Amino acid sequence: MQPSVIEMMYSQRDEIIKQWKNEVAELNQFDSTLPTNWFHETNEKFVNLIMDTLDLEENEAKEQFRSFAERLMNAGWPLSYFTKGMQLFRRVLVQMLTSDESFESEKVFETLNEVERWVDGVINQLVDEYTGSWENTLHLQKLALKELSAPLIPVFEKISVMPLVGTIDTERAKLIMENLLEGIIEHRSQVVLIDITGVPVVDTMVAHHIIQASEAVRLVGAECILVGIRPEIAQTIINLGIDLRKFPTKSTLRKGIETGLELTQRKIVSTS
């Protein structure tokens, strides 16, 4: 930034901040639940940060913006607050520059271009910060989902259950298959119950993945029972013409376990 522009901005700092606050006040519409005093306090910090970093070294200025943005990101503030805030600051600054009688008219385009580059640089950095944070959060969520998704749980000797919850896509179907086969070997399961009670929609693709899983179970010497067939799921399967007759199905997990016990020559008896 040109020293003359920075000097002008510092000399009119209070007026620039005042005009920016008036412009940015409307941004509170992005979250009506945000406390007004917190919003105004954050605006105060934001605009002072912008002014205070004008004459800093690039790396130092970036670090201060990064630290400020990180705190607000963790608090749930949207990216639009930063981008719109910087755009409004550019508008206020341009208005101040062009209305200043001492401003050299022959340098107007050069100065405005410099202001544009500076504001765009800050916006790009904030977008990068948010993108990086979002990608990191998404990566951690995927890891957590992978750790918690589709576990094979031994419930009795030689009988295991795999409860499925949520939507099943191709990537998750691959994970289900891996956990299923590895779990059968590890737990020495002879009967596996795949519980789809928590699967909201069973379409052709989901049914295809389930059929593949049951065939894989059969290939490693175990029996597969599909449980959790709700009436609406049964109707959908019939309407889609999906053939699930190749392996047993039960409406509830309890009935599936009873069948599993029978297949392993056991049964539940009352002791009373």
Rank of each mutant, 00 (worst) to 15 (best):
W38F: 08
E106F: 15
T204P: 01
Q2L: 12
Y10V: 10
T131K: 11
D128F: 05
P231K: 13
Q125C: 04
N239P: 04
L112G: 03
D120E: 11
E114Q: 07
R218K: 09
H139P: 04
L112W: 02
F82M: 04
D55C: 11
R254W: 08
I168M: 05
R90H: 00
E116M: 00
H40G: 13
E44K: 11
I184F: 09
T131G: 01
L56C: 02
L175Y: 12
G132S: 05
Q2E: 08
F103T: 07
I268R: 00
D203M: 01
N22R: 13
E7G: 12
I168G: 04
R90F: 01
V192F: 07
K142Y: 05
E41H: 14
I123W: 00
Q235K: 06
R188G: 15
V201G: 11
I17R: 05
W20F: 04
D203W: 01
F68V: 03
M177G: 13
F39H: 08
E182N: 15
D169M: 10
E63Q: 15
D195L: 07
E186Q: 15
D55N: 14
Q141M: 14
R245Q: 13
D55M: 15
F30W: 12
S133H: 13
K146F: 02
G121R: 12
H187S: 15
P200V: 01
V127W: 00
W77K: 03
E26T: 13
I237Y: 07
D14F: 06
Y130Q: 05
E57I: 07
T249A: 08
Q265D: 12
E129A: 04
R254S: 06
F39E: 07
G221S: 02
T264K: 00
G221I: 08
N59K: 14
F46H: 03
E63N: 05
V94P: 00
L148S: 06
N74H: 07
F46D: 03
W118K: 00
A222L: 11
Q87I: 02
P78D: 01
D52V: 05
C224S: 11
E171V: 09
H40S: 13
F46R: 03
V24R: 05
I184A: 13
K62Y: 11
S160C: 13
S11I: 08
T131D: 10
L54G: 03
S149P: 03
A216Y: 01
P231D: 08
Y81Q: 09
L152Q: 05
M1C: 01
E258K: 09
